[in-house]
Nucleic acid binder design. Structure first.
Ligand code: FES
Ligand code: FES
Lengths: 150, 150
DNA sequence: GAAATGCCGACAGAATTGGTCGTATACTGA
DNA sequence: TCAGTATACGACCAATTCTGTCGGCATTTC
């Protein structure tokens, strides 16, 4: 429950890997897949999706592959997840087009939307750069987030 | 992605409903199910699980049913979700017993655990009471949460 | 004892996700 | 210009997870 899809996980791993190899011009889907032992074709599709949404730059042909389209600091975990799994909505009814059949009776949707918003904020505050290296980050300082309840 | 299961949704709705009817001694699963048009038997199972984890008190027999075990202010959304869907983990590998096969290579797990923690905090800061009534809550004040990024 | 209710496990159907395949297209370098 | 390497994309199957139902039993009230 409430867990990332494997695809999103793969996507984050791949971006992290790219962020850790800024020297190379581009890395092929296969390169990355092999590095982590994940299905190459599947990862390829994931990278393609991120390319389409502008997170990556791609280049076909020999020595082709993918590279970050922006600085790792400028790519948030939220963007990655959104690109791969679509809009993030905690409420069961996937929003937008078709509302779930109990929309009229469901009284909980609206308050949960705010929770959803908070989660999105958390995700937006994490960048690929934060994921890469920096094993140290300090357990306390956490990832730069402070939560205050009134 | 990252969305609540319908069960958790139902559970929250039911608790909210109970919180809004504090006068009655107990409400049967069927009562609540009918109120929202959700499958009675399914809801029954959900309520049972919440009973087992101590969120509800139950009473069999005529005029039996369920009632909140504690004040609505003392029951968090996190507890509800945890009771129904089990431990909340954003990382694909469901933790504990069996780790996913790429545990050694997955370098992303640890940083995400912190994100997970943040989300859990958000959920813990929301009580059933917050969900019930109070349509007003002020869009700005939100639900009593302030997020600060460094 | 009968009716209303909760309790529990097993299971079938539906929906989602994960992963594969085939084919087309683009770039590189010899 | 041709062979090789790569991305792009859609269709499709397989595995898993989620939803919902059923049947039987236990407990309380009248
Ligand atoms: S789940 Fe769709 S409206 Fe609440
Ligand atoms: S998904 Fe299991 S370790 Fe990263």
């Amino acid at each position: 429950m409430l867990k990332l899809s494997k695809k999103a996980d793969y996507g984050l791993m791949a971006l992290k890997y790219l962020a850790e190899h800024p020297e190379t011009q581009a890395l092929s889907a296969k390169d990355v897949a092999d590095a982590y032992g994940i299905p190459a074709q599947l990862l390829a599709k994931i990278l393609q999706r991120m390319t389409k949404t502008g997170l990556l730059r791609s280049h076909a042909g020999m020595n082709g592959g993918y590279a970050l389209a922006r600085d790792a600091r400028e790519i948030s975990a939220y963007e990655v997840i959104h690109a791969i799994d679509g809009p993030l909505f905690i409420t069961s009814c996937t929003k937008g087009a078709k509302l779930c059949d109990l929309t009229p009776s469901c009284t909980i949707k609206e308050p949960l939307a705010r929770v959803n918003e908070s989660i999105a904020e958390v995700l937006k505050s994490i960048s690929i750069y934060d994921l890469a290296e920096h094993e140290h980050v300090g357990e306390h300082e956490a990832h730069g987030l402070v939560l205050l309840t009134r």
